[in-house]
């Protein structure tokens, strides 16, 4: 098991390096550069060269990459070129908002999804099952920015219950969390339902029935526990997907966060900030995948047996 863990973590190293190369280099293919935003229009080439030296943009790309990577590994994310402040400060301002949004959306998806999935599984092929599965499918196919705007229209404008945008109070979180969470709910509900139905057919369930336990107790006490394994795994694997949803939703609701920071910095060519944001998102996804794989290994007896 330990050997598996070590091997799994070591596998991340080449991926991390590849990710860092891509993050670093891809921005340089976008037309325009950050110096343009700083220089006086009509500036001399000398002034430009001086500015490039100042921000280290005059060196060959591989050298710039080496410096950047070694700084990042030492925890130094550099200084924003256009925003003129430490990138770490910008990230520190944005990250809590994104974590709150992503975390709550994840929680919402899990609770609502498992709940609906259980109800659907218990009523397999009857109308509550069909209604729930139809509803969540519809929920997962609406573009998140559209859903966000429609929710805004209904709950903020027509009903006046919740604030439209921003992050000035906890109520401002409700609509963005719902917007992202509804997509995740569909996924969780589907997996919960399928896993419960599958688990119900397993030998140990027949045994429990034979022992005379009440069907509901069997379902909630034993079957659900088994069914949760794939749910947790898939959720961990889907962290990136939730973060991706957060980018659009943050823009729609004018919320501070990594998504808005990223979009803003991308359009200003503020490389250090974009690099840091992408790195944060990629790391979250990689850790999510790692977590998912480990959970699968720990909880799935077949995989565990294979590794032993």
């Amino acid at each position: 098991m330990i050997a598996y863990l070590v091997r799994r973590i070591l596998m991340l190293v080449p991926v991390f390096l590849a990710v860092s190369v891509v993050i670093f280099s891809i921005l340089h293919f976008i037309p325009g550069d950050p110096i343009d935003n700083l220089l006086k229009i009509g500036s001399s080439p000398e002034a430009r060269a001086e500015m490039e030296v100042r921000y280290g943009l005059d060196r060959p790309l591989p050298v710039q990459y080496g410096i950047w990577l070694s700084n990042v590994l030492r925890g130094d994310l550099g200084t924003a070129i256009v925003a003129r402040r430490p990138v770490a400060d910008l990230i520190a301002q944005a990250l809590p908002h994104s974590l709150a949004l992503g975390g709550l959306a994840l929680l919402f998806s899990t609770v609502a999804g498992v709940g609906l999935g259980v109800i659907a599984a218990l009523n397999r092929d009857r109308w509550p099952d069909r209604a729930i599965m139809g509803g969540v499918l519809l929920g997962s196919t609406m573009p998140s920015f559209w859903l966000g705007l429609i929710l805004m229209l209904v709950f903020s404008v027509w009903l006046g219950w919740l604030p439209v945008s921003g992050a000035r109070s906890w109520t401002a979180l409700v609509l963005p969390v719902l917007t992202i969470g509804l997509g995740g709910t569909a996924l969780v509900a589907r997996i919960t339902r399928v896993s419960m139905i599958e688990a119900s057919g397993r030998d140990f369930v027949t045994l429990l029935h034979a022992k005379g336990l009440s069907p509901l107790r069997i379902q909630l006490g034993h079957v659900l526990r088994h069914a949760l394994i794939p749910v947790v795994t898939i959720l961990a694997l889907r962290i990136g997907w939730i973060l991706g949803g957060a980018v659009t939703v943050e823009v729609v609701f004018a919320r501070p966060g990594l998504g808005t920071l990223l979009i803003k910095s991308l359009s200003q060519h503020d490389y250090p900030v974009v690099q840091a944001c992408l790195l944060m998102l990629a790391m979250a996804v990689m850790l999510g995948t790692l977590l998912g794989d480990i959970l699968q290994a720990v909880m799935d007896p077949r995989v565990r047996a294979a590794l032993a």
Partner: peptide
């Protein structure tokens, strides 16, 4: 590695950056 690499970024981000290029 390439597959893991693209899976490390949300699809919308890959798309946004590529369109910018």
């Amino acid at each position: 590695v390439a597959v893991d690499l693209t899976w490390s970024f949300p699809e919308i981000l890959i798309a946004l950056i590529l369109v910018a290029i």
